[in-house]
Structures are given as structure tokens and as C-alpha cells.
């Protein structure tokens, strides 16, 4: 398996297009950094002296929301409860909401680049099987004493590794750019998380890693789908087209549908944003974290059953 992964890795990284992808990603982060730096120098942020009072007003308005909206929507109830608990914690422990730009806020902002990384991972996922067919090299690949399942698995793992590499590049490079442009935070900052009715302080860099991984779930699913289409139909443009359309439109379309139909919760894209369960509101009432995880697993399994089932059986005649 190690050798197979190495083969796939070499094939990807000897391509010019892969180098271009990485350069674009790095350029994107630098441009973003420059833009934020420019904004920071032109606008002056003042320290708000009355932040405690403002939070207090926010809390009472949230409490109002809790009694009205929270009554008939369990998810909204959790949301308000969380907001109130977090703000109360801030007042009690004297943690002012911080507007300062520093390395970690920049790493957080760089999550925007994840869609670019997703785009690249999808291109790789869509091409990794179908390009062997279009170049004819599949014939030399499948006549080795290695089962087709192993070959396809090595390709899928390569896609995953490529995605992880892209994420790591964004995280590490934006840390570097953030450190150079904005420096470390002036006071100790940590992420306030709310779980089981309690507020806990978490390391901000660790929390960002979790956030990066959570916001990559939709990309993981779409890349898996692109991989499935690519192995089943052997056509990379078809796979890329459908996948990118879904990557950019799927979420929006699901939100639109969610306001009318309850069954929207079974759609893949209603379940890909797991951060909703930690910091926001799920799009259909009554959805829970475990429901979404089960849905994601079901989709994941279906994609792989199709990909492996078709790839292992089908005749290579072209």
C-alpha cells in the first residue's frame, strides 16, 4: 500500500498544475493578509469602555428571544442559552470582546481559503481515476498483481492526504503571515466554548484546528462524490462540473428548501456544516449532531459502495 500511495503522490506532484494550485493558495493568503493589514492601518479601533453595559443589554434582549422563540424551537433555545451564558461569563470574568487583529484572528479569517483548497481537492479527486482512463495508462495499472480495490483505495487515500496537505498549508502559512503582519495577541486570548450548560476556555490555536476540520466536511463529502463519479463514469469534466456546481450552489439551495420542506434535513448539504451545532443554529428544526453524523456516514458509504462496486467489476475495453 505504501508503494501505491507513493506512486499516486509522485504522479500528482510531478504535474505543473499541482504546483500552480499551491502557489495560488499561498498567493491568496498573502493577498488577504495585505488587505487586512491595509484595513487595520486606515481604521482606528478604540477600546470600548462601556462594553459591560452593552453586553448586559444584549443579554436581556437574548432572554426575551429565549422566552418567545425558544418556546417552540429547541434549536433556537440552545442558541439563546449559549449566547447568554457566554456573555455572562465575559462580564463575570472581565473578558472584553476583543477587536484586535492578531495571528489567530488571521488564521481564523483564512478559513475563507478552504473553499479554494476544496476546489483544488475536487479537481484532484475528479481526475485521479478518470485521467488514467483518458491517457490509457489504466491498462498498464490494472494488469499488476494488485487487486482493483487496493488500487482504488490508494487513490482515495491520496485524495484525502492531498486535502489534508492543503489545509495544513493554509493553517501554517496563514500563521506565518499573521505573525509577521499582525504579531501575537497583546493579552492572553482563549476561545470560549459552551458545552453542557457550562462555559469553558479553550486554547485558541487548538480550537482553530477543530474549526478547520469541521469546515472541511462539505469538501470531504463533495470530493468523495467527485471521486465516485470519476471512477464510475470515467469522465473528469463531468465529475468536476457536477461537484463544483454542488460545492457553490448546494448549500444555498438547501437553505432555500429548508424554509419550506422538513425533508430537507436528509439532503447532504443540510448536514455538512457541523459548526452549527457548536456556534449556530441547524437549518432544520430538531436536527441533532448525531443525526447529521449518521447522515454523513450514510452518504459516505453510498459514494464508496458505488465507486468501488463499479470500478472493481467493470470491463476495461476502451
Amino acid at each position: 500500500m505504501g508503494n501505491l500511495l507513493m506512486n499516486e503522490w509522485i504522479k500528482i506532484f510531478r504535474k505543473l498544475s499541482t504546483t500552480i494550485m499551491i502557489v495560488l493558495l499561498l498567493l491568496g493568503i498573502v493577498t488577504m493578509g495585505a488587505f487586512y493589514k491595509y484595513q487595520e492601518t486606515t481604521s482606528t479601533t478604540q477600546v470600548n469602555e462601556n462594553w459591560k453595559q452593552e453586553l448586559q443589554t444584549q443579554i436581556s434582549s437574548d432572554q426575551e428571544g429565549l422566552t418567545t422563540a425558544g418556546e417552540n424551537n429547541a434549536n433556537m433555545k440552545t442558541y439563546y442559552e449559549r449566547q447568554i451564558a457566554l456573555n455572562e461569563y465575559r462580564i463575570e470574568n472581565d473578558i472584553a470582546p476583543n477587536n484586535e487583529q492578531h495571528i489567530w484572528t488571521f488564521v481564523g479569517d483564512s478559513q475563507m481559503m478552504i473553499s479554494l483548497a476544496g476546489l483544488f481537492s475536487i479537481i484532484i479527486a475528479a481526475g485521479i481515476v478518470s485521467s488514467e482512463f483518458s491517457s490509457g495508462t489504466i491498462k498498464l495499472l490494472l494488469i499488476r498483481p494488485i487487486s482493483r480495490v487496493k488500487i482504488l483505495l490508494s487513490k482515495y487515500i491520496t485524495v484525502l492526504l492531498f486535502g489534508i496537505l492543503m489545509l495544513a498549508i493554509i493553517y501554517l502559512f496563514s500563521s506565518l503571515v499573521g505573525l509577521v503582519l499582525f504579531g501575537l495577541p497583546s493579552t492572553d486570548v482563549s476561545h470560549l466554548a459552551y458545552s453542557n450548560g457550562e462555559v469553558i476556555e479553550r486554547s485558541i490555536s487548538f480550537n482553530l484546528v477543530i474549526q478547520y476540520l469541521l469546515s472541511s466536511i462539505d469538501i470531504l463529502m463533495i470530493a468523495t462524490m467527485a471521486f465516485m463519479i470519476s471512477s464510475a463514469f470515467r469522465n473528469s469534466s463531468f465529475a468536476i462540473g457536477i461537484s463544483l456546481f454542488l460545492l457553490f450552489m448546494g448549500g444555498t439551495a438547501t437553505i432555500l428548501l429548508a424554509s419550506w420542506f422538513d425533508w430537507t434535513k436528509y439532503i447532504l448539504f443540510a448536514n455538512t456544516d457541523l459548526t452549527a451545532y457548536f456556534d449556530g443554529v441547524p437549518i432544520v428544526e430538531g436536527m441533532t449532531l448525531s443525526f447529521s453524523i449518521v447522515m454523513l456516514l450514510i452518504y459516505f458509504l453510498i459514494f464508496h459502495l458505488l465507486a468501488f462496486g463499479i470500478f472493481a467489476k467493470r470491463d476495461v475495453a476502451a
Partner: peptide, 10 residues
């Protein structure tokens, strides 16, 4: 099998 197709970029 048919033409010996290789990875052209390698």
C-alpha cells in the same frame, strides 16, 4: 495492451 501508454509528464 494496444499502444504502450505511459505517464507523459514523467
Amino acid at each position: 495492451v494496444e499502444n504502450p501508454e505511459m505517464y507523459k509528464h514523467l
